[in-house]
Simulated assay, not measured.
Amino acid sequence: MTNTSTGFDATRMFSFDLETTSANPLEARIVTSALVRIDGRSVDAVEHLADPGIEIPEGAAKIHGITTEKARAEGRPHDEVLAETVQQIKQAWADGLTLIVFNASYDLTVLRQLTGDFTVTGPVFDPYTVDRIKDPYRKGSRTLTAMCEHYGVELGNAHEATADALAAARIAWKQTRKWPEISRMNGGELMEFQAVGYHDRQSDFARYLEGQGKDPSTVNTSWPMQG
């Protein structure tokens, strides 16, 4: 894993977001992929529209606004978008940037499921997971929209991939100001902090479900990818 010796630098980030065909990361295919490179004052954002090669369910289209017809007419081949997304993430890690992913266990699991061999080779900062660990008893939703309101971050068009990626990066920046000890963690420490904290929060949730007489076996406890 690269970039493990120095603390997290919130001025050098690569924020990433997918909009997909399914809420299940083991079934999802990419519809849009947003990649936002933040290096000091330089912000370079690109968004790829993919033809997922399957029908986009109505429920998914209502969330992100991309219909099957639009994806087929205007989207690039799915495997091209997938390959370019992975290549740019790997390049960002090679360049010493931290990958910002809101709810990383979803998006990174999608990449692994689609490629069959995607691995994490650099640091990941997941604002959703950090929020759950550092502020576990706060009431209310932890959706991206809700967290933007909580941290005072402008979201723009929710569920539009570039807007979501930019918002996640801004939340990450605000979190390092609220909890400066995070910015002093090196890459390995940051990853361990999130993986252990995620496991603990999810295990608590599984025990809660079990206490309610519900099946806890579907609760994922692995971060940053499922399984």
Rank of each mutant, 00 (worst) to 15 (best):
D126T: 02
G53V: 00
V43K: 12
G213C: 15
E210Q: 14
T68C: 03
T20Y: 07
Y198Q: 05
Q175S: 04
I133S: 07
R72W: 00
N3Y: 10
F205K: 05
S203D: 07
V101A: 07
Y137V: 09
W223T: 10
K139F: 00
S42K: 14
T143R: 15
A60V: 09
L49N: 11
N103Q: 15
A73M: 13
A172K: 08
G227Q: 12
T21D: 01
P52R: 00
R37W: 00
V46T: 12
E47N: 09
G213K: 11
S222W: 06
Q91V: 04
W223E: 02
Y151H: 12
A83M: 13
A165T: 02
F16G: 12
A10V: 09
G122W: 00
T109A: 03
L35E: 10
P224I: 03
K139A: 10
N186A: 10
M185F: 07
G140V: 05
T115D: 10
G213Y: 11
A169I: 07
C148W: 02
G227P: 06
G187R: 12
V36I: 14
D126P: 03
R72I: 02
D44H: 11
K139E: 11
A104F: 01
T98R: 06
G40N: 14
Y128N: 01
L82P: 02
M13I: 11
Q87E: 15
D126H: 08
H150C: 00
Q175E: 14
Y137A: 08
R132E: 13
E160L: 11
Q91I: 02
T32P: 08
N24Q: 10
R12D: 11
V43H: 13
Y128D: 02
Y151P: 04
K139Y: 04
S183Q: 14
V124Y: 06
P57I: 10
A73L: 14
D204S: 14
N103H: 15
E84I: 08
V110R: 01
R184E: 05
P180K: 06
D164T: 01
G53H: 01
F193H: 10
P123H: 09
K174M: 13
D39L: 08
R142E: 04
A71C: 06
E154V: 15
T129Q: 03
P123E: 03
S22M: 03
E84P: 05
E210H: 05
A168I: 00
H48V: 00
K174L: 13
S5M: 15
G40F: 10
E181S: 12
